[in-house]
């Protein structure tokens, strides 16, 4: 397969994963626990967007924005009703993490209850792909790349040019100091949930548009999203983006590599072509995860 096609496929995969990984890494950074419900909310939000778009006939972009806002609000509500109380009680981060797992199971099945397990397909025209430098890419995929790029820029601006962003970075750098300098951290945390879930919904909807939408979507991408966040250095949003792109490339390259020549020892043995069975595709992110944990657990951009 052409290298240009690998690059295109990897970019798309990376773009989708990075919007999901940003929120995950942010919550971990500020609150100190891994949110196992994160991708479930992405799928839930994508369902909301699908409902607005195809059942109520609202314009697609507007539907996604609405769904993202709504899911962000749910994030705030859950923080107010659950996590804030637990923080006040000084509950262990371990407890919080298990709660998110339970929450994830509940959300996934609430989606199933409302929208059933049958798959949904965003009503997109099916077009023949465009050819760019030998790589095939559809208009929808170009749109996905474009929106992902805009979202990243917006996130960067948010982090560096707003009060929220500055406060968030301050909290991230030093929680004690931030508290002392009168930053309203409770409010910042709520905003953070809002941003994390809104971004997750955009990422989730992009995945659903490119592929399909179904209740288990969130669970199916949880491992790659975590892997991307850890690979880039958990707690660092830029690392999350970098990790997602790296993972996208690794997945596509490993699956298309032919290990045959490697094992034939320069033509000594004829082993034919040796490729990783596509059945193991989901295991690639796991292998990368283990490698990262063995070599550099803090990830590419993480501090030691």
């Amino acid at each position: 397969m052409e290298i240009s096609q690998i690059i295109v496929n990897s970019l798309i995969r990376g773009a989708e994963l990075s919007l999901l990984a940003i929120g995950l890494t942010m919550v971990y950074d500020i609150l100190g626990f891994a949110n196992f419900a994160h991708t479930e909310f992405a799928a839930f939000g994508a369902f909301l967007g699908f409902t607005f778009n195809s059942l109520l006939g609202i314009n697609l972009l507007l539907s996604v924005v609405l769904a993202a806002l709504l899911t962000g609000l749910i994030g705030i509500l859950l923080d107010l009703s659950i996590f804030e109380k637990l923080r006040a009680r000084n509950a262990k981060t371990l407890t919080m993490m298990i709660i998110t797992m339970g929450m994830g199971i509940a959300i996934r099945n609430i989606s199933r209850l409302i929208w059933t397990s049958s798959t949904k397909n965003f009503p997109m025209p099916l077009l023949q792909p465009l050819k760019i430098l030998g790589a095939r890419i559809t208009r929808v995929q170009l749109g996905i790349l474009f929106i992902a790029a805009i979202s990243m820029v917006a996130f960067h601006l948010l982090l560096h040019h707003t009060k929220f962003g500055k406060a968030l970075r301050a909290i991230s750098d030093n929680k004690e100091l931030a508290r002392a300098s009168a930053i309203d951290s409770a409010k910042m945390v709520q905003w953070m949930w809002f941003v994390a879930y809104s971004y997750a919904v955009i990422g989730g909807t992009m995945l659903a548009i490119e592929h399909l939408l179904y209740p288990r979507l969130g669970f199916d991408i949880i491992i790659p999203v975590f892997c991307a966040a850890i690979l880039g250095g958990i707690g660092n949003p830029y690392g999350a983006v970098l990790g997602a792109l790296t993972l996208g490339f690794a997945e596509n390259v490993i699956i298309s590599l032919d290990f045959g020549p490697l094992f034939s020892l320069g033509g000594l043995f004829d082993v034919g072509s040796l490729q990783l069975s596509t059945g193991y595709k989901p295991a690639i992110s796991f292998m990368i995860l283990i490698l990262v944990l063995l070599i550099k657990p803090t990830g590419i951009l993480g501090e030691n």
């Binding site: 397969m1 288990r216 199916d220 699956i255 298309s256 595709k281």
Partner: peptide, 16 residues
């Protein structure tokens, strides 16, 4: 090519 059920991306399988 044997593909696993329930996945949303079969691009790698198709290329294979």
């Amino acid at each position: 090519v044997s593909y696993e059920l329930g996945k949303v991306d079969y691009k790698a399988e198709l290329r294979r």
